[in-house]
Design a protein around this nucleic acid. Structure first.
Lengths: 209, 209
DNA sequence: TTTATAACAGACCGCCCGGTTTGTTTGCAA
DNA sequence: TTGCAAACAAACCGGGCGGTCTGTTATAAA
């Protein structure tokens, strides 16, 4: 595939993402996409077999970028300090900055869109979304396990419970953010999570310790 | 309106609710609804001006029932004990039982559906959903304020922050519940919230105190 | 320069969508 | 029993939908 073709294909996916996050998948027609991309049916069906393939590639590309971003946040936090608690706090701060600084006019989570419109997609795509959520969760599980291992929690909790809770708080924050049109909601939720972690694990140990 | 007419109208709304929660609003056609209701276009448009009015009435009816249920849970908790912390725990337990015992094959929150498909609805409906979320939140605000007033929190938090967090946890739990097909997820999230509240406010005071 | 193919344009198709219209049946009050 | 509105049935309509088909232009290797 040529460079130009690859660029067009990517542009279609970009516009699709924007429209789907704004109007939903069923609410976004191929013509809508092509109108914004200033292309025609010929171009679209040259690059994609149909709307189903577009949906699949869209969420796959997003999952790749999204998970990579979270891994990058984790990596940056790990580079900054060896302390698991400081790492987690740093990670959450990075996330909070990211989520509240996005000037996205229609915020939200693509996995949530795919989940609530699940019948629009092939079972394999539904499975992929669930798997991606699991992968996202397992990033947290790893970090929370390290945290639990070096900071005995005040209450018995598993890393998986905390990871699932973190995903919930993000997803719930994004829904309210979208409903209220207030980009600060999710950040506030993340702050409450940090409160919980503080109560669970206490202050970060001093470097001397 | 006759009794029979009112029954049909209600049946249309029931079926619509089930289909919308399963396939989304844009993904649910009037014909889909009528097929399941064993009715025809004539019946539908006799009862509703169009799909927009159906959407409005559906979410309004749901909001009424839903808020009433939460108020009922609160009332039952208040009837059981005077202690705000015990009330909150009781309330969450009632909610956990409700959310994990529903044999709904396509679980989720209708407000989330409306929020992620917001462009499908008139601005007034979008506003109504946001208002309903605010009303839902304010039920929690009231109870959390009472809680804060009699149990000094270990960390300074506002009732509004806790209320928003509670909504987030529920919404996020429902998304994962739907994505994974596991009805126990939201209950687990609620348990984590109770952990947080326990760390924040401590054990309930003894009755003697 | 030729030539194969990728990268499109745009007309076209059948289906299903929300909505309309016309007609029929039912229930109930006078 | 009649009259009349409510409660439907069902055919119909225009438009938009996903998708196809044919043709044209750009690109890059031989």
């Amino acid at each position: 595939m040529s460079l130009k073709g690859e660029k067009t294909r990517s542009r279609i996916l970009d516009i699709t993402k924007s429209l789907v996050m704004k109007k939903g998948f069923a609410g976004t027609s191929i013509d809508d996409i092509l109108k914004e991309a200033k292309l025609t049916k010929g171009a679209f069906f040259h690059h994609f077999k149909g709307k189903a393939e577009l949906a699949k590639e869209l969420v796959e590309r997003h999952a790749m970028n999204d998970l990579a971003m979270f891994e990058r946040f984790v990596g940056e936090a790990e580079a900054a300090t060896d302390d698991p608690l400081r790492q987690m706090i740093l990670f959450l701060e990075k996330f909070e900055e990211y989520i509240s600084n996005s000037e996205d006019p229609s915020p939200g989570c693509m996995y949530a869109v795919y989940t609530y419109e699940s019948m629009q997609f092939e079972p394999s795509v539904r499975d992929f979304v669930a798997d991606t959520l699991r992968r996202w969760t397992s990033i947290y599980v790893r970090k929370y396990q390290e945290l639990i291992d070096s900071y005995p929690p005040k209450i018995p909790v598993t890393a998986r419970q905390l990871a699932e809770l973190t995903v919930s708080i993000v997803e719930g924050g994004l829904i309210q953010q979208r409903a209220y049109g207030d980009v600060r909601v999710t950040k506030r939720q993340s702050l409450q999570l940090r409160n919980y972690l503080f109560l669970l694990f206490g202050e970060p140990k001093t470097k001397a310790a």
